[in-house]
Simulated assay, not measured.
Amino acid sequence: MSFGKIWSYSGNFRVQRALALADINGLDVQVVPDFQMGVTNKSEDFLSKFPLGKAPAFESADGKFFLTEGQAIGRYIAESGPKADQLLGADPQTRAKIEEWACFSEAELANNIIPPLLMVMAKMIPYDEAKYNQSAAALERALKRVEVALKGGKKFLVGDQFTFADAMVLGPLHLAGKFLLDEEMRKAAPSVEGYLKGLLEAVPEMKKQFGDIVLAETRTRA
Results as ranks from 00 to 15, higher is better:
residue 18 A to W: 06
residue 129 E to T: 13
residue 127 Y to E: 13
residue 151 K to G: 13
residue 143 L to S: 00
residue 134 Q to P: 00
residue 126 P to T: 11
residue 74 G to D: 13
residue 155 K to Y: 02
residue 165 A to L: 13
residue 91 D to A: 07
residue 207 K to H: 13
residue 12 N to T: 07
residue 5 K to T: 13
residue 31 V to D: 02
residue 5 K to C: 06
residue 106 E to P: 00
residue 53 G to F: 00
residue 140 E to D: 08
residue 148 V to L: 15
residue 116 P to G: 11
residue 168 M to V: 12
residue 172 P to M: 14
residue 142 A to Q: 09
residue 144 K to I: 08
residue 107 A to H: 09
residue 68 T to R: 04
residue 40 T to N: 01
residue 197 K to N: 14
residue 46 F to T: 03
residue 213 I to W: 04
residue 211 G to A: 08
residue 133 N to F: 12
residue 192 V to F: 08
residue 90 A to G: 04
residue 162 F to G: 02
residue 208 K to S: 06
residue 179 F to S: 07
residue 219 R to N: 08
residue 177 G to H: 04
residue 90 A to W: 05
residue 169 V to I: 04
residue 136 A to E: 09
residue 50 F to C: 01
residue 22 A to T: 09
residue 102 A to C: 06
residue 136 A to K: 13
residue 93 Q to M: 10
residue 152 G to S: 06
residue 52 L to K: 04
residue 75 R to K: 07
residue 125 I to M: 15
residue 220 T to N: 07
residue 55 A to I: 13
residue 91 D to M: 06
residue 196 L to C: 09
residue 128 D to Y: 05
residue 186 R to H: 08
residue 147 E to S: 11
residue 173 L to A: 05
residue 102 A to E: 04
residue 132 Y to V: 02
residue 138 A to W: 01
residue 177 G to D: 09
residue 52 L to E: 03
residue 167 A to Y: 15
residue 198 G to N: 05
residue 42 K to D: 01
residue 45 D to Q: 07
residue 47 L to K: 12
residue 158 V to N: 03
residue 25 N to A: 03
residue 171 G to T: 06
residue 133 N to V: 11
residue 104 F to T: 00
residue 15 V to L: 05
residue 205 E to K: 04
residue 50 F to G: 02
residue 216 A to V: 04
residue 208 K to M: 11
residue 206 M to K: 02
residue 58 F to H: 00
residue 201 E to W: 05
residue 9 Y to A: 10
residue 26 G to W: 12
residue 163 T to K: 10
residue 93 Q to T: 08
residue 143 L to A: 00
residue 209 Q to L: 09
residue 132 Y to P: 03
residue 30 Q to R: 12
residue 144 K to W: 09
residue 53 G to I: 05
residue 137 A to Q: 13
residue 86 Q to E: 10
residue 203 V to Q: 13
residue 151 K to S: 15
residue 13 F to N: 04
residue 49 K to T: 01
residue 203 V to D: 08
residue 48 S to H: 09
residue 181 L to A: 08
residue 120 V to R: 07
residue 94 T to S: 01
residue 15 V to C: 14
residue 187 K to Y: 03
residue 67 L to G: 02
residue 54 K to L: 14
residue 144 K to T: 07
residue 196 L to P: 06
residue 162 F to M: 06
residue 67 L to W: 07
residue 142 A to G: 10
residue 23 D to P: 00
residue 216 A to K: 03
residue 74 G to A: 03
residue 145 R to A: 06
residue 93 Q to W: 14
residue 164 F to V: 07
residue 74 G to M: 10
residue 7 W to D: 09
residue 217 E to K: 12
residue 127 Y to R: 15
residue 127 Y to I: 10
residue 45 D to G: 01
residue 86 Q to F: 12
